[in-house]
Computed example of a mutant assay.
Amino acid sequence: ILKAVSKLEFTNIVCKSFDKEFSEFEYCFLKSVNRSYKYMSLKVKLHKLPITEVKVRYALLKRLNGYKPFLYNITVNACEFLRSPNNPVTKIAVAMVKKHSNMNHTCPFDHDLIVEKLDSNYVVSLLSRLPIPTGDYAVYSTWFAYDIPRADVNIYVKIAD
């Protein structure tokens, strides 16, 4: 029997820039405040502004003898999506980040990109109605500008009852 997500814990975040002349991570970390409050923050410094063309490829993976694909592998044109949100899975992903980020407008992006203090309790509140099996998961994302991969952000979580 599947249960709705009731407890989610960030376990790791890994950020990697492929072209430091284009962008680099000023910071990318998880912080544990106490046993029940953990958040993640990241800041990407963009060196070639403005950016008018952004795509994101993201996949949900489940840990089963290594991380294996689980449900979603989606590529979305971020500029078009922010103008006209049309993918329900991406809507949930954007809703998770929007309140904690400055990536809440359409292209062009003419500033550094920040996700600040995105906490696991907030993520659970958005996912609480979804039946996701317990286990270890990863969200792998690759960020493209002008169809060139610029960075990877991989987030690891544990879902429990």
Results as ranks from 00 to 15, higher is better:
L2N: 08
L2P: 07
V5N: 00
S6N: 10
K7Y: 08
F10M: 05
F10D: 04
V14I: 14
F18W: 11
D19S: 06
K20C: 05
F22K: 06
F22D: 02
S23P: 00
E24L: 15
Y27N: 14
Y27L: 12
F29K: 13
F29P: 04
F29Q: 14
F29W: 09
L30N: 03
S32L: 09
R35G: 14
S36M: 15
S36V: 15
Y37N: 12
M40C: 05
L42M: 14
V44M: 14
K45E: 08
K45F: 12
V54W: 04
V54A: 10
V54F: 12
K55N: 10
K55Y: 10
R57V: 05
L61V: 05
K62G: 00
R63N: 06
F70L: 06
T75S: 11
N77R: 13
N77C: 03
A78K: 03
A78I: 01
C79F: 11
L82Y: 12
R83L: 13
R83I: 06
S84I: 06
N86K: 14
V89I: 13
K91C: 07
A93T: 02
A95H: 06
A95N: 08
A95G: 00
A95L: 11
A95D: 07
V97N: 01
K98I: 01
K99S: 05
H100F: 11
S101N: 04
H105G: 06
T106H: 13
C107I: 06
D110E: 15
D110S: 14
H111D: 12
I114R: 01
V115P: 00
V115G: 00
E116W: 07
D119Y: 11
S120E: 06
Y122A: 05
S125K: 12
L127M: 09
R129D: 03
P131S: 00
P131E: 02
P133S: 07
G135C: 02
W143E: 02
Y146T: 00
D147S: 04
D147N: 11
I148T: 10
I148V: 15
R150T: 06
A151G: 04
A151V: 09
A151C: 11
I155H: 02
I155W: 01
Y156S: 09
I159K: 04
I159G: 00
